[in-house]
């Protein structure tokens, strides 16, 4: 019973992909927000100034809003599968972005990137296999 529930199902897998896509969008907003402060040498001396500046940038708040939605979906995922399964599968963002740019932007993708994509797919396969039932000592 316990092990069956920990299995990576297609439903949970799609949820992870949704959080991945949302997270990469939020990441772009954050990068945009950090650049918009116009500060690039941040240390202890101007850390507070940086904090106040970044809190006044709108793209930061859009990013935070996306993160709030994402947090909710992520908690549903974590209530269903193990963290060491959910987290690495979160890397499918790295597959989605290049594939989308090939399909819609007709971008050329370098060989090295294809190799990377292939490695990620193999990795996801192994991790989903690692959630399958094993003879377990607390099994009745």
């Amino acid at each position: 019973m316990k092990n069956i529930k920990n299995r990576l199902t297609l439903k949970v897998f799609f949820l992870i992909i949704i959080t991945d896509v949302l997270e990469s969008v939020a990441e772009l907003f954050f990068k945009n927000g950090a650049t918009a402060t116009g500060m690039n040498n941040i240390g202890l001396h101007n850390f507070l100034e940086f904090t106040f500046k970044i809190l006044s940038v709108p793209s930061l708040w859009i990013g935070i809003l996306i993160y709030a939605v994402n947090f909710f979906v992520w908690m549903i995922i974590l209530s269903r599968i193990e963290l060491s399964v959910a987290f690495p599968i979160g890397s499918t963002t790295y597959i989605i972005v290049p594939i989308l740019s090939i399909m819609f932007l007709h971008e050329k993708v370098f060989l090295l990137r294809w190799v990377g994509i292939l490695l990620i797919i193999i990795g996801v396969y192994f991790i989903s296999k690692s959630t399958e039932n094993e003879p377990h000592k607390d099994e009745p």
């Binding site: 060491s84 399964v85 690495p88 599968i89 890397s91 790295y94 597959i95 290049p98 370098f110 090295l112 990137r113 190799v115 990377g116 994509i117 292939l118 490695l119 990620i120 797919i121 193999i122 990795g123 996801v124 396969y125 192994f126 991790i127 989903s128 296999k129 690692s130």
Partner: peptide
């Protein structure tokens, strides 16, 4: 399986990010 899977993903992410 989980260790191998994680290592594959780590290497894949490094390659994708690098190229």
């Amino acid at each position: 399986k989980r260790v191998v899977g994680t290592i594959f993903i780590l290497l894949g992410v490094l390659l994708v990010a690098k190229s």
